[in-house]
Amino acid sequence: MWISVILQADAHRAEALSEALMEHGALSVSIDDADAGTEAEKPQFGEPGMSPASLWDHSRVIALFDTDTDLATALATASAAAGLDVVPPFTVEEVAEQNWVQLTQSQFDPIRITDRLWIVPSWHESPDASAINLVLDPGMAFGTGSHPTTRLCLEWLTTEIQPGVSVLDYGCGSGILAIAAARLGAGEVTGVDIDEKAVETAADNAANNDVSLRLQVSAKPLEGTFQRVVANILTNPLKMLAPLLAARVAPGGKLALSGVLEAQAEDVIAAYAPYITLRVGATHEGWVRLEGDRPEQAVS
């Protein structure tokens, strides 16, 4: 059993209070939006290329303590260290000990992408042994198959991968799209990500699925062209990457982009217009998949 203490704080004091609580007995501390789930909820994390947002005006500092902690002393000392005259308003809840591994696993079931393709956590039996079953557990890198943008890209791969085609997955995260392409019959598959840890995760996931990927961090120059290029990132990075990604599509090749909200689609289409013509290929829960084709080179 542990004790969870939830304190109210503003954006100017939340971080200082969080640090002070850790220094005065808290086992862990997190900060979230006290207005979450209401009309006043404030998005915290912007996209690359945008100025970072400040902490929430109405923040909630959640600290976990052992049950034998002198809470009154710990809270008073931490509040004073954070420059507060009094302890902020707070509530206390008991947190029962649980099998956290079992609880986490229970939240992830197999995901049907199409009749042909499933995403299956390693602790589950496959619902359809005759389908292509990607073994993928939730982890630090983005991409478990549950997000609409990932699903949109996976659906595209199931229709656009022919045996032996070369594939580029730019912003590969967990490697789910690259692994799916390989399992669907692609030839050489390359995955690129800005995060070295994501590249390591993708390599582990590829090994678990018995496929071979060529993986690299985006700081390394990317050469060559590919018959299929897919990128599931965010709108601003996709716009900035337009020259690079369009140049990687081979003549006669195809491009698919996701991580784009419906309201952002025209901006992305405009960013790629000088290089390749995009269209909305599919939508799901407010997200879109943009698709484009590079014509075969004219024969002189």
Rank of each mutant, 00 (worst) to 15 (best):
T69N: 07
D70A: 14
G286S: 01
S59F: 03
V101N: 15
R214S: 15
A242V: 03
S218A: 14
T159S: 02
A198Y: 10
Q216F: 14
W56H: 03
D32F: 08
E41D: 13
S18P: 07
P251G: 00
L184G: 02
A72Y: 01
K239F: 01
V299L: 00
S218Q: 00
T150P: 01
L255H: 07
G292T: 07
S166D: 07
L75D: 12
D33V: 04
L27Y: 02
A247N: 03
G173I: 04
S18I: 12
T73P: 00
G173Y: 12
G281C: 08
C153F: 06
A96E: 14
A203N: 11
T235C: 13
G281M: 05
G224S: 01
V135E: 02
P48Y: 00
A74H: 11
V5D: 12
F90K: 02
A202P: 06
H58W: 01
T67F: 04
S79N: 07
R214D: 11
V217T: 15
G191I: 10
S174F: 08
R214M: 12
W287M: 14
T190G: 07
Y275Q: 05
I233R: 02
F142G: 11
H58K: 14
I233T: 11
A76T: 15
H147M: 12
T114L: 13
R289P: 11
D70W: 04
V86F: 10
P274F: 00
P163V: 06
P295F: 05
E94G: 10
D57A: 13
C172Q: 08
D57V: 02
G25L: 13
A180N: 06
L134A: 01
L168G: 02
D193F: 03
D33L: 04
E93Y: 04
L7E: 09
G46C: 12
D169M: 09
Y170G: 00
L244Q: 11
G25S: 11
V101H: 05
A181L: 06
D68A: 10
A181E: 08
G83L: 07
E285L: 14
E125P: 00
F90L: 05
L222P: 06
V86Y: 08
T77K: 15
T73D: 06
L157N: 09
E223C: 04
D109F: 07
L84Y: 09
L244D: 05
E19G: 09
A36C: 04
T225D: 03
L103C: 09
H12Q: 15
V87R: 08
R248T: 02
A186C: 07
E196Y: 05
L257Y: 01
G292P: 04
G185M: 08
A202I: 14
V217D: 03
G187E: 13
T77E: 15
A40E: 02
F45R: 12
Y170D: 02
E19N: 14
V135R: 15
G139N: 03
T277W: 03
R279S: 15
V260Y: 08
V165C: 15
L168I: 01
V249I: 04
T77D: 13
